[in-house]
């Protein structure tokens, strides 16, 4: 079975390792149910990347039309997804293009479910152990700006 084609994350992209469920009606790629939404206008499945991009475009158009209003306003359609992951996906595509940010890619996951492979193994390297906070662990009290 094909895996979901979505990349998770913002600064760090990771492959989604869930099995694909349905195809996006816009980009035709296959995604898992977590990364698909049914678009209310068309009643068709759309992946979060495509949905997010549409939302961002709509917002930009709206902002251009509302030049007089300086406050941050959104339309209802945008609001429906504002707290949804879809917003993050749209924002990130906008951010990557406007800030010229290229995200770190933290590897793809395995497609072989039978045995542990290198992808599984690398997570268990000592350097990946998050339960060993270093001696110089982040100090929330310390302000690095105090010089």
């Amino acid at each position: 079975m094909e895996n979901c084609n979505m990349k998770r994350g913002f600064f760090f992209l990771r492959d989604c390792d869930h099995p694909a469920h349905q195809s996006c009606s816009v980009c035709q790629a296959s995604f898992c149910s977590e990364h698909l939404r049914i678009k209310p206008e068309t009643n068709e499945p759309v992946c979060l990347d495509c949905l997010g991009r549409t939302m961002q475009q709509q917002q930009q158009q709206q902002q251009q039309n509302q030049t007089l209003n300086t406050r941050n306003r959104r339309n209802d359609y945008y609001d429906d997804y504002y707290y949804d992951n879809a917003w993050c996906y749209g924002y990130r595509s906008n951010y990557y293009s406007s800030s010229h940010y290229s995200p770190w890619y933290l590897g793809n996951s395995s497609r072989n479910n039978s045995q542990f492979n290198d992808q599984d193994m690398r997570v268990f390297d000592n350097s990946a152990d998050i339960n060993d906070p270093d001696a110089e662990a982040f100090d929330p009290e310390a302000n690095v700006f105090d010089s």
Binding site: G9, F10, F12, Y82, Y83, N85, W87, Y91, R92
Partner: peptide, 16 residues
């Protein structure tokens, strides 16, 4: 709604 919520939403994408 304009700052706190988006910040948490986006940082959450890069957290375990």
């Amino acid at each position: 709604r304009g700052f706190v919520v988006p910040i948490i939403n986006l940082l959450g994408q890069d957290m375990t």
